[in-house]
Nucleic acid binder design. Structure first.
Lengths: 240, 240
DNA sequence: ATTACTCTCTGATAATTATCATAGCAGGTT
DNA sequence: AACCTGCTATGATAATTATCAGAGAGTAAT
C-alpha cells in the first residue's frame, strides 16, 4: 500500500497525466491490452475539486466512469425530510460511480470532495464497450464492484450494532487505521457529518468526543485528532 | 411480475426440472447460447430446504453459485457478541451467493430458509468459465450484483434514518408490498428476527406491533398480519 | 466594523429505547 | 402427564439518545 501511494504521488507530479505510472493499470485494467489502454487513457479527462465541492449530484444521468486518483470523498443521499445521510467514504483507486453504474441510469447518491480531490473520468460507453468485448476486464470490474459494496454493507452492519460511543470509536478508528494510517490526523469531516454517517445527532457526537477527551482516550485540537489510547478505543468500538 | 410467477409455478410442478420454463434464462442467461445453457442446466443441482434450515453457513468456502427458485430466505451475520444481524431477504430469482461470490473465497454471511425454499446450484467454476468467455454474460451478472447490493444499501439507509415505529412500519410494508403483494400475509419471521433486522430489541418490536394493533393500523393473529390502514402505516414509515 | 453564517460546545429536559422481571401459551420430548 | 424451550406479551424502571436553548469562535460578505 505504501508502495502504491509512492508511485501515485510520482504520477501526481506529472501534470500532463500520461497515465504512465497510474496504479489503475494493475488493479483495474490488468486484462486490457496495452494498446487499448493507451486509447482509453487518451480519452480520459482529469478534474480537480477542492474540499466541499460537488463531484456528482444525486439524480445526475450516469454517463461517465469516475475513479479517485487523489483525495477523499463522501457518498451521501438526501432523505425525504431533507437531511443528508452519508453512505460511505472513498479514497484513491475507488470507483465512486461504481455503486449505481450498472444498476441505474441515474445516480442515486451524491459524491462530494472532503479533501482536495482529483478524479479521472472515462466515458461510460467506452468502458462498457471494452467490457463487452473483454470478459476478463468485465470480471475484474465485477470483483471491484463486489469488494466496494461488500465493504459498505459490512461497515453499515457494524455501525448498526453499536451504541453511540462505539460508533464514534468506530469512525475514529476508520480514519486512523484505514484512511490515514496514523494516530494523529485531521478529521476531514465536521461533527455534523459524523452524525450523518452514524445516524446520531450532532450534539451527541460532540458530547461523546468531549467525553473521550476527558477520559484521555483522544486529544482534540479543533479538527485535529490524536488517538492517545487506541486499545481502549478499540474495546469501546467492539463494545465496552 | 405476476406473469413470471405463473411461469415459474408451472416449472415448479415439473419435478424432473428440465429448466424448460425457468425464468432464469431470460433474466440471467439471456446472453448465453442455448446449447451452452443446456450444458449448464445439465450440471445443475436442485435442493430443497424447509423453514429454518440452513442453506449457507458464514465461513463456508464459496464453490457454488446459488439462486433462489422458490421460497424466501434471510441473509444474516453473527457479530462478535454472538448476536445475529439480518442483512436482507431474498426471493425467487435472486442469487443468494452473489454478495460475496466475486469478492471473497468464503461466505461472510449465512443464508437460512424462512419459508419452504428450493434453490438451484451451479458450480462456481463453471459459471466463472462461461463468464470469462462471454463478456455479455459477465455484464449481465454485474448488473445483477449491482441491483442486489444497491437494494441492500438503500434499504439499510432507510432503516437507519427511522425511529422504532418507522422501522416496524417499513418492515411490514416491505413484506406486504414487495414480497407478498397482499395486505394480509403470514409474517415469515419471528419478532426476534425483526429485531435483528432493524437493530432494536425484541420487546420493543412486540410492543410496537401491539401499539399498531391498538391504533387499529394492523390486525394480528399470531404470525398473521393484516394491514388495515396502509395509508397511516406508510406515513409512519416515511416519518410520523 | 457589523452582520450573518456555520461550527463547536454545554446544560437542562424530554423522548425514546433498553433492560429486567414475570407470565401465558404453544410445540416438542420424555 | 410433566417438563422443557422458545415465542409472544406486558409492566416497571433504568439507560440512552434527542430536543431545545444558549453561547463563543471563526469566517465570509457587505
Amino acid at each position: 500500500m505504501r508502495v502504491n501511494e509512492t508511485r501515485v504521488n510520482r504520477a501526481m507530479g506529472n501534470t500532463s497525466c500520461t497515465c504512465e505510472y497510474c496504479q489503475l493499470k494493475n488493479i483495474f485494467f490488468a486484462h486490457v491490452k496495452s494498446d487499448e489502454l493507451t486509447n482509453i487513457c487518451d480519452l480520459k479527462v482529469e478534474r480537480s475539486y477542492s474540499k466541499g465541492e460537488s463531484i456528482i449530484q444525486e439524480g445526475d444521468p450516469i454517463t461517465e466512469f469516475v475513479y479517485m486518483k487523489k483525495g477523499l470523498v463522501k457518498l451521501s443521499k438526501a432523505s425525504i425530510d431533507g437531511k443528508d445521510q452519508i453512505i460511505s467514504f472513498s479514497k484513491p483507486f475507488d470507483f465512486v460511480s461504481l455503486l449505481s453504474v450498472f444498476s441505474s441510469t441515474q445516480y442515486k447518491y451524491s459524491v462530494t470532495a472532503i479533501e482536495q480531490t482529483t478524479v479521472c473520468i472515462l466515458q461510460l460507453d467506452v468502458v462498457r464497450k471494452y467490457a463487452e468485448e473483454n470478459a476478463l476486464f468485465a470480471m475484474d470490474m465485477m470483483s471491484n464492484i463486489s469488494q466496494m459494496t461488500d465493504k459498505i454493507i459490512l461497515d453499515n452492519l457494524e455501525i448498526k450494532r453499536k451504541h453511540l460511543k462505539g460508533r464514534i470509536a468506530h469512525v475514529l478508528l476508520y480514519f486512523s487505521d484505514y484512511i490515514y494510517k496514523k494516530d494523529e490526523f485531521e478529521l476531514p469531516i465536521s461533527r455534523r457529518e459524523i452524525a450523518e454517517y452514524i445516524g446520531m445527532t450532532t450534539e451527541n457526537v460532540i458530547r461523546t468526543l468531549s467525553e473521550f477527551r476527558k477520559d484521555e482516550i483522544i486529544k482534540i485540537f479543533g479538527k485535529d485528532i490524536l488517538i492517545a489510547d487506541k486499545k481502549r478505543l478499540k474495546s469501546i468500538s467492539d463494545f465496552g
